[in-house]
Write a protein that binds this DNA or RNA. Structure first.
Length: 742
RNA sequence: GCGCUCUUAGCUCAGUUGGUUAGAGCGUUCGCUUCACACGCGAAAGGUCAUAGGUUCGAAUCCUAUAGAGCGCACCA
């Protein structure tokens, strides 16, 4: 049979009619996504049931880094979704039992403070006016609404997530996991309650962890005061009321006549005091005068010195940043107002030696912007240095029955390759962070989040989500740091603490690709929790990606008003184009500059593909896919196979950006520019064998190209796939990867 | 202060274990209503790969130094 029919013939064919107008993503994408979702094939169990995947195929799992329910999807999410979906779709086509778990994060402090702000603005009420129960209800309602928006946005990106396994960090199943994790760690002595110095945010009225701090440069003054026979330097005179210890380095020759523990009388801010000399080698002799007084209640460093020498600690500043009665006439003043007045008083007393301009960094709370005031507080902590015996381990370098600390566990998991971190720079940053790690303060004085599962009954303590049967038990009022539940994410989403099939099959997950901002905050804590609770790493490979920036290389931010809504880009160019624009040429780990003109280019590419399909379908109508290939055509087919192999290698190595670029380049500049062009004279000529061969070649190349391109541009490839005269899978999504076809 | 990363065409970036003449997209210029596609086709201009040394038969790639940019950690009273 002659494979070539005239255009008029194919126009009578319904399948070809749609190719007569340019590709229209907006008309296509929602329909295709609905068809995928309806097929159930995002769910690996369903893939097995429908015969698309073998029941004993290897598993491949990824968990979506859960977006916060505080707002809307931004371009950074769009990038993460594109990257993961490309990998997941590739693995699914390779025949793995592929699971991508969706979810969202309650983001406790961020969400609560946002709702608080709204309520304050609209109703003039504080959370205390509403009360705990009402406030939590309001925050949850906001979260619910926001969740709906975010989930529909993720769908529009084409993300092939198994929605039947959707999880929320604050749902009941995750709460069970949190309580179980807390109890296990408490029983192992790794969670404890104690008076410790913490980062107190007076604005947010809560503690925060070291990792939630942002340092900001501040211009201020550095003062030198006479303190008995010494001159001390300070940038914070307002904390100095209670200072009765003067500290210097034991080897400092300038002060060698003074002995540790020696006392002297001196005039100070509010009258005479008795001061004690302390020698401590944490003092930097070069800084200031090499002598300082300490305020253990309000400084991390001072607290450590005081603990070391067993010194008294006294609170000077309250939780709202106001001076306490110890400040005498200054009591009740805000520290910012009091500073100058205190200096004035010391100057009047002749104790001010000199002052000089000074630039230093002050700690502020990432979420609220409040200036951190260290305070000593009774809080819950995860100890990273207490030894425990690990009962179960599949992690290389971690022996069952050996004694470890959480620190050593986190280090070993990466050091011995349990978690591959191929980016050397990030690996170093990870180790550096671990080496400087302090105990993790996990209690937060807010209301939205997992409540600390601890009950107090007089002297007794009970751990659980419900009170014991007897009377008089009170639950701890605080909630857990949001990262506590996030850290369980890879296995809490799979049903832990139950020993589920999902947990057995899909954990450890295959890879995780977070932004480098949360390497410490999240990645390391997942390694901690997963290692301790189930003796596994949370993921085998972690690839840190960069930030998406604007064309000028700036971060997207509200103040610059340079934010880009992924949905408006999708409306304009289609999700396929956005995905390609984000993926191609964006080496994983470096920052990505977002350029709309590039996305536009890939919209054109989608249309190009559309026309490639049109040309091939029109010119090969009725062609036999068994026709023998001429030697020339066989060579072209072999070239494709070589490309497919390269792309496959790239995908195995997570070089998604290269894979996408190569197949793009092939489709446009080989298939369309060369192969299609040289086909025209062949189809016009008289040689029936050559025409048959060429028709078969083109059909095959179209088929294979669609497969190869599908992970990156799922919508347009699926839409064209549906027009193929012969196909071995109803959905391209579950068709075989080219290197696995025959 | 300690550490990490980057510097390639006008712009944004690729360039995998060192190996032909360093690539892409966008932009620019010129020419094309060629019946798959103007969301297109054909062509062109444009680079001492930050700088200076070194290793090597061979360096954008490895090493050292310098300059610039960005980031992380520690923050010191």
């Amino acid at each position: 049979m002659d494979p070539i029919r005239k255009l008029e013939d194919s126009r009578s064919n319904g399948a070809s009619e749609k190719y007569l107008s340019p590709y229209d993503p907006s008309a296509t994408e929602s329909r295709i996504y609905a068809a995928w979702e309806k097929s159930g094939l995002f769910n690996p169990d369903e893939c097995v049931k429908q015969g698309a995947t073998k029941a004993d195929a290897p598993a491949y799992a990824v968990t979506l880094p859960p977006p916060n329910v505080t707002g809307v999807l931004h371009i950074g999410h769009a990038y993460e979704d594109s990257l993961q979906d490309a990998v997941v779709r590739y693995q699914r086509m390779r025949g793995k039992r592929t699971l991508w778990v969706p979810g969202t994060d309650s983001a406790a402090i961020a969400t609560q403070s946002r709702v608080e702000k709204n309520i304050q603005k609209e109703e003039g009420k504080s959370r205390h006016d509403l009360g705990r129960e009402e406030m939590v209800k309001r925050v949850a309602a906001f979260a619910k609404e926001s969740e709906g928006t975010i989930l529909s946005q993720i769908r529009r990106m084409g993300a092939s997530l198994d929605w039947s396994r959707y999880a929320y960090t604050l749902d009941d199943a995750r709460n069970k996991a949190v309580v179980a994790a807390f109890k296990r760690m408490y029983d192992a002595g790794l969670i404890y309650r104690g008076h410790r110095i913490v980062n107190w945010d007076p604005k947010g009225q809560t503690t925060i962890s070291d990792d939630e701090i942002v340092y900001k440069e501040e211009q201020t003054k550095f003062y030198y005061f006479k303190y008995g026979p010494f001159t001390i330097g300070t940038a914070r005179p307002e904390t100095k009321f209670g200072d009765k210890y003067v500290v210097m380095h034991p080897d400092d020759p300038r002060y060698k006549e003074w002995k540790h523990g020696q006392t002297f009388e001196t005039e100070w801010i509010n009258g005479p005091i008795t001061a004690t000399v302390i020698k401590d080698d944490s003092i930097d002799r070069e800084f200031g005068t090499g002598v300082m007084t300490i305020t253990p209640w309000h400084s991390m460093v001072d607290f450590d010195i005081a603990e070391h020498h067993n010194l008294d600690k006294e609170q000077i500043i309250d939780e709202y940043g106001k001076l306490l009665p110890i400040a005498g006439e200054f009591a009740g003043m805000k520290i910012s107002d009091a500073r100058e007045k205190i200096v004035e008083k010391l100057r009047a007393k002749g104790l001010l030696v000199k002052e000089e301009p000074y630039v230093h960094n002050i700690a502020t709370a990432e979420r609220t912007g409040g200036v951190i005031e260290p305070q000593v507080k009774l809080q819950w902590f995860v100890s990273v240095t207490r030894p425990f015996v690990i009962e179960h381990s599949e992690i290389p370098g971690v022996e069952v029955g050996s004694s470890m600390t959480l620190k050593s566990l986190m280090r070993a998991a990466v050091e011995h390759g349990g978690v591959a971190m191929p980016q050397e720079g990030f690996r170093k940053a990870y180790f550096h962070w671990i080496d400087n790690l302090r105990d993790w303060c996990i209690s937060r004085q807010i209301w939205f989040g997992h409540r600390i599962p601890v009950w107090y009954g007089g002297e007794q303590v009970h751990i659980g989500d419900e009170a014991p049967a007897s009377e008089g038990w009170m639950q701890d009022p605080d909630v857990l740091d949001t990262w506590f539940s996030s850290a369980l994410w890879t296995f809490s989403t799979l049903g832990w603490p139950e020993q589920t099939d999902d947990l057995r099959v899909f954990h450890p997950t295959a890879f995780m690709s977070p932004a480098y901002e949360i390497l410490n905050l999240w990645v390391s804590r997942m390694i901690l929790m997963s290692g301790f609770h189930i003796g596994q790493v949370p993921f085998k490979t972690v690839l840190i990606h960069g930030l998406v920036r604007d064309k000028q290389g700036r971060k997207f931010s509200k103040s610059l008003n340079n934010g880009i809504d992924p949905l408006s880009i999708i409306d304009k160019y289609g999700a396929d184009a956005l995905r390609m624009g984000l993926l191609v040429g964006a080496a994983i780990g470096s920052d990505i500059s977002f350029d709309e003109s590039r996305v536009k280019g890939y919209k054109h590419f989608a249309n190009k593909l559309w026309n490639i399909a049109r040309f091939i379908l029109e010119n090969t109508h009725g062609a036999s896919i068994d026709a023998p290939l001429t030697p020339g055509d066989a060579q072209i087919a072999a070239q494709f196979d070589a490309l497919a192999k390269e792309v496959t290698d790239d995908m195995e190595q997570y070089r998604v950006y290269l894979a996408a670029e190569k197949i793009y380049h092939y489709a446009w500049h080989e298939l369309a520019d060369k192969i299609l062009e040289e086909s025209k004279p062949i189809f016009a000529a008289d040689d029936a064998d050559a025409r048959a061969s060429r028709a078969r070649l083109l059909l095959t190349l179209l088929d294979r190209t669609l497969r190869l391109l599908h992970p990156f541009m799922p919508f347009v490839t699926e839409e064209i796939w549906q027009s193929l005269p012969q196909k071995d899978s109803t959905m391209l999504m579950t068709a075989k990867w080219p290197s696995d076809v025959r």
